[in-house]
């Protein structure tokens, strides 16, 4: 663990001042998820306009890793097309925060990091299937989300 820091300046800063923290009323996508191990919960809100993510917010309770990952994820996807977001993968998110090592070093804490991405994938999947009635576009997002960790 000594060689692979978790509590970097950036993570601590995000945990104190998360980005895009809050709620969107009547959001096009609202995804709630929880980490059964620690009781952490997050709610992810997305508005979609013109096939792009026009607005994104999250709220909930989580550890520093969870809060930092939610912050960075929401920053990274804002303005992206749904196709981009479908392709977004965990390495992109983890490397942004220097947390790639968690995949190998901490099977427990990786769940804190990826709760955000799991919610995003499930949320977009439900949007295609429920709201757009387009299961083809939803692709295998559901499966992907379920197999993230």
């Amino acid at each position: 663990m000594s060689g692979d820091p978790i509590y970097t300046e950036m993570i601590i800063e995000y945990s104190r001042n998360p980005s895009n923290f809050g709620k969107i009323d009547n959001a096009h996508i609202h995804q709630h998820d929880a980490n059964p191990l620690c009781g952490d919960t997050i709610d992810l809100y997305l508005n979609i306009d013109d096939n792009k993510i026009s607005e994104v917010k999250f709220d909930g309770h989580g550890c520093a890793i969870c809060m930092a990952c939610c912050s960075v994820l929401t920053e990274m996807i804002k303005g992206k097309t749904l196709d981009d977001v479908k392709k977004f993968d965990k390495d992109e998110l983890l490397s942004e925060l220097g947390l790639e090592h968690l995949v190998k070093t901490s099977p427990v804490r990786i769940k804190c990091a990826l709760l955000s991405l799991k919610s995003l994938k499930f949320g977009i999947y439900s949007y295609f299937v429920d709201k757009m009635k387009d299961s083809e576009s939803a692709g295998n997002l559901n499966e992907e989300a379920a197999n993230l960790y």
Partner: peptide, 29 residues
């Protein structure tokens, strides 16, 4: 306001094993 998981991970570095989480008692939490 430090999340228990973060406390647990940081003190684990010093070899201290405690439990962080809801302790299977979410009604109490």
């Amino acid at each position: 306001s430090v999340h228990p998981h973060d406390v647990g991970t940081i003190i684990d570095k010093d070899g201290v094993a405690i439990r962080s989480g809801h302790h299977c008692a979410q009604v109490l939490m």
